[in-house]
Write a protein that binds this DNA or RNA. Sequence first.
DNA 1: GTCTATAACCCGATAGAC
DNA 2: GTCTATCGGGTTATAGAC
Lengths: 199, 199
Amino acid sequence: MQEPSTRDLILKEAKACFARDGFDGTSLNDIAAGVGIKRPSLLHYFDSKADIYAQVLGAALADWGLRINESVKSASDSWAMVNSVLEASFDFFKANPDVVRLFRREALGAQSASTKAPGVILQPFFARAVKFLEREMDAGRFRRHDAENLIFTGYGALLSYFSDNELLSDLLGSDPFTEDAMQRRYSHIRDFFLAALEP
Amino acid sequence: MQEPSTRDLILKEAKACFARDGFDGTSLNDIAAGVGIKRPSLLHYFDSKADIYAQVLGAALADWGLRINESVKSASDSWAMVNSVLEASFDFFKANPDVVRLFRREALGAQSASTKAPGVILQPFFARAVKFLEREMDAGRFRRHDAENLIFTGYGALLSYFSDNELLSDLLGSDPFTEDAMQRRYSHIRDFFLAALEP
DNA sequence: GTCTATAACCCGATAGAC
DNA sequence: GTCTATCGGGTTATAGAC
């Protein structure tokens, strides 16, 4: 059992803070206090607050990309592909709700100015998904839809449940993050999209 | 033609700033500069920055609520109801993208601490929609779904297109806010949800 | 590697003149 | 109703001791 390095502890605490309070809402004091060190020590490991943020966001995007590439490789046919990517994404978001909130804050407006836009990093994944869907629709295996808009709809439906959980909690009057609620959510999304794709 | 009061000009500029930069990201200087007055003059009209924010958010929610109530009243049957509420929401979000971004920032985490949670205000609308859908499903006019999750999916699909427009722009390589792109988006959402509800 | 101390800055809010 | 001036507090970042 490796004990985590101070650098890793900083990144972990920073992810939680940025997700909860946003870039402007978290101070280096907050992160340092969470790790148990003093503020100047943070800047021994990183150049600036913006640097910490860039590392956190970059690692999160890379993690998601790895999972998706794995799930794509494991799919045996067209329907398994849709199932596999949906499930891999859902499971990743469920296990990393901080990443979802972090990402959506970024999508709402660049938090740290000098960060590469996530859209640029995700563009190859998007292009590949559009290509896949259009090929399957051309072959008649999936019902015809606007492929780009179909992905946007899936994007919004998947991420919003995890990012806006306080709002959903107030609407429901109960916790949307229980194992049971999660299971119902996933079943709904899977059934909804598979039904829409049936020819 | 009434010339707008300074108070209204402040609220208008504040809405744009809060939507673009978030609560923490906008300073009273930013708002004052946009209006063309000095910072202390803002606090002649409002008690505090948090007060300005609360007024902006409250007015935005009230505007949306009015539109929805109108569209509900105008619907003649079950299918017209779904169509009417979807279209009224889409048109409102299209005309007020600032409100969408403002709202989603709030959903991501309370921006100003002492603001009433939007979920509490929206809960009656949500409860009414759940009741309507379940009645229609029980009567066999709509296909059976988990009503709560169906609304969440619609919520995410509708709002994400407007709130995350920079991300979508990078993914598409083109502007998602052109009249043509908007028309395609609305058609997709309408067809997608109507198809899902067909018995 | 971690600390103390400090520099330089911007913020929200208040007091009081006009 | 709008202004100038100011207070008190928090921010990132740096310099340098240990």
